[in-house]
Design a protein around this nucleic acid. Structure first.
Length: 105
DNA sequence: ACGACGGCCCTCG
DNA sequence: ACGAGGGCCGTCG
């Protein structure tokens, strides 16, 4: 695992259940504003995805685009949606309902 | 060392 | 509200 990835994971792990954050914001929190794209890259390549490992993994599904639309997911977008809804996050169309309200960080 | 590519972002029409 | 274009950063071949 690279240094950058560790920072990202650490941050993302802090996102509480039922809330979300964005690639850009996470990047900024990691001290690399503008590295939003790289963040997505990191999520994709992380070895302990939440949906496989469980609560000890990284909740990559709680990270979305800055306009409230979903973004991608290595395990398939369908699964990302399921996970989110399972946590109580409502999704309307291709975007998150009340995005700003449940946004953290 | 180098070029290519992403789970993107922001600014304009 | 919505698409197009250009920029940016870390990784992997």
């Amino acid at each position: 695992m690279t240094k950058f990835q560790e920072k990202i994971c650490k941050i993302v792990k802090k996102i509480p259940r039922g809330k979300v954050s964005t690639y850009a914001r996470v990047a900024r929190a990691a001290g690399s504003p503008g590295a939003a794209r790289a963040v997505g890259n990191a999520m994709k390549k992380n070895d302990r995805p939440y949906y496989k490992v469980g609560s000890k993994g990284i909740p990559c599904h709680r990270v979305v685009k800055s306009d409230g639309s979903l973004g991608g997911f290595s395990g398939g977008l369908k699964r990302k949606i399921e996970l989110l809804e399972r946590e109580g996050v409502e999704i309307r169309g291709s975007k998150i309902a009340d995005f700003k309200r449940i946004l953290v960080i």
